[in-house]
Simulated assay, not measured.
Amino acid sequence: MSLSTWALRAGYRGLRAGMFRYAGGDAERVHEAMISLLAKAPAGARGRVADPITVAGIRFPNRVGLAAGLDKDGLAAQAWARFGFGFAELGTVTVLAQPGNPKPRVFRAMSSEGIINRMGFNNRGAAELAETLRAKGVARGNQALGIPLGISIGKSKVTELEAATQDYLTSLRLLAPYADYVAVNVSSPNTPGLRSLQAAGELAELLGALTGEAAALSARRPVPVFVKLAPDLEGTDLRETVAVINDSRVAGVIATNTTLSRHGLLPADRHLADEAGGLSGRPLTARALSFVERLAATTQLPVMGVGGIMSPADGARMFDAGASLLQLYTGFIYEGPALVRGIQELRRPL
């Protein structure tokens, strides 16, 4: 880690102490305040060109991106390049605006460097996100905000599983003009029944419809479709799901989402074990890495590695496991922009 990155890390940790105390330690209120502040940031910064790569026809200025969940409604979309990210994934959004699950629904496992959340796809809806991006001058491929933007789409809570495909298709139609890629979220544990869409039969129907619609919207250059999987998918279920993905026209896989497991929570955080929701951060590190290793061994598709990347060394191991790109969420909360820069320094010493 360079001296400047070390200083950036130390400065952020001082700021983090105050942020984590804000609003009585309410993690969601801190998140909302951060997004409100970043929403006022001017556009214009370009992604740091440290380790460029082209994946699915998209040129990324570097391989470290922001994961979905931090900026659900794209309010701070113009700010993420300023933190050194090479891309940002907005959402997850649904066709219907929805409030998400009852609060409180976000819990910091401080000793374990983890977060448990059961947000439940709270968002303003796909049409609202499309309008927000249009107003910011975003169009697919123009990188008006300095970096490529992915958009994660999910199923509205009130939509029956039998109608899920149409729900996703409507979001795709609304957002394809603004997305450099679309991520299909079938792996959140916080929408009842959603993970059943990872099953081979259901996933084949959904991915076939979405990639077909993407081609219909732009036969010459369909928007790339990625699918995001849960780290709890194992054994025969995982093999069958990957076989479906390999036979589809998707552009890549995002691995992983949060886990329902509570393995890795330290004793000081065990009181959170019974809180419903997905666990992210340090307790997910080994599980996500193992998942990416298994996935990379069974598919030729590019993989975005996400989950438990809490240090530059974790990022390096994820690349070694076969990931082409990385995404940060909980690691960024705990370590700040120094983590983004530190991973890039390992990839390409400055």
Rank of each mutant, 00 (worst) to 15 (best):
P42W: 01
G57P: 11
L70Q: 14
G141L: 02
Q300C: 10
G308W: 06
R270Q: 12
L66H: 05
D51H: 15
V106M: 03
G212D: 11
A313S: 14
L149V: 00
A338S: 14
D26F: 06
A200F: 07
L3R: 14
M110A: 15
P283C: 08
S311G: 13
G57A: 12
L145I: 06
T298H: 12
D71H: 09
H271M: 10
I309W: 03
P189S: 07
R239S: 14
L289T: 05
P104E: 07
A135L: 08
L238C: 10
R262I: 06
Y181M: 04
R118E: 02
V49S: 15
D320L: 03
S196G: 13
T256D: 01
Q198P: 13
G47C: 03
A251C: 07
S156M: 02
A139P: 09
A276R: 10
T236W: 01
G308T: 05
G44S: 13
P148G: 15
R173L: 03
L197S: 01
A216P: 11
L15Q: 15
S156G: 14
A243V: 00
A296W: 00
D26M: 07
S196R: 01
V225Q: 05
I115K: 05
R262L: 05
E275I: 03
L3M: 09
A179P: 09
D26P: 15
A199L: 04
G336T: 11
T94I: 00
R270C: 10
Q198T: 03
V244R: 03
V49R: 14
T94Y: 03
E293F: 01
L37K: 13
P302F: 05
R249G: 15
A27I: 04
A109P: 08
I333S: 03
P148V: 05
R29F: 01
L325M: 06
E345P: 11
I147P: 11
T298I: 05
T165Q: 09
F291P: 05
V340G: 15
A316V: 10
V244A: 12
M318V: 02
N142P: 10
T211L: 00
R341Y: 07
L238M: 09
N246P: 08
Q143W: 02
G252N: 12
R9H: 10
A321C: 14
G146I: 01
D320M: 09
A209T: 07
M1P: 13
A216L: 10
S36N: 11
R270L: 07
Q78P: 10
Q198F: 02
E234W: 01
D320Y: 09
G25W: 00
P99A: 08
A276F: 06
G18I: 06
R282T: 06
V95G: 05
G235C: 09
M310H: 13
G65T: 12
T92E: 00
D180H: 08
R48W: 11
L172C: 07
V250I: 13
F87C: 12
R220A: 15
G201F: 02
L37S: 15
P177C: 12
T236I: 04
I254S: 10
P52L: 01
R294F: 02
L169D: 05
K157D: 04
A297H: 12
G193Y: 01
F107K: 03
V93G: 06
V93P: 06
